[in-house]
Amino acid sequence: MKNALDRIVRSQVWRSIFRHGLPDSNRSRAETVFYNFFLHLHPTKVRKRSIKFTYTWGLGGMSFGLFIVLVVTGALLMLYYRPSVPQAYWDMKDLQFVVSSGTFLRNMHRWAAHAMVALVFLHMLRVFYTGSYKPPKEFNWVIGVVLFVVTILLSYTGYLLPWDQLSFWGISVGTNMIHAMPFGVGDKIAFLLLGGNIVGENALVRFYVLHCFVIPVVAIVLMAIHFWRVRKDGGV
């Protein structure tokens, strides 16, 4: 047995994937992190205070973790969901009653969404109370606020997708508020957003594209900059 494992670990294939063995010195530990795609965002060294859990409560990281959960559950939900009228509603029902783990995935998606809004807000509070927005970190705070709005928008666009009464009226009220913008600007923006004059098929498809692609891409880009900024400014 040991011989076989030895043979594998010494093969060229293995060594091309796992360049370093398990680290045994500080230098090799540093290299393992530095030369790994997934781990390289972490610094090789951190300040002692940032390890203290109660300093950040891990809120930012948890928000990101929830985002991952939402992307994964969302992608899986997409496999059974068609964004057209009236299929959307019936597909939602199917996910609830028929699809294996459908209820679990849908509920997970919903809970993660609510939790992410809450955690993002708490993270914002934490950053404020620890003064982590002070120069030179002002711009990162701005990006953070934009990310907060993006999170809310994701919730809002996603709310239409089940196409039930709550969805319809919720979006009706929201787009009527947009209509209220003066000088015809509101009417034009609402027309583009809904793809028409009414909350109908066109609106559903547009919100679907916004919710699944456009806004997540914006969120990912902003998050990347946001994390990069944190690292470059020396960590939390």
Partner: peptide, 9 residues
Amino acid sequence: YLSPNVLRE
């Protein structure tokens, strides 16, 4: 492109 030319309403 984003502004629809025909509407089914």
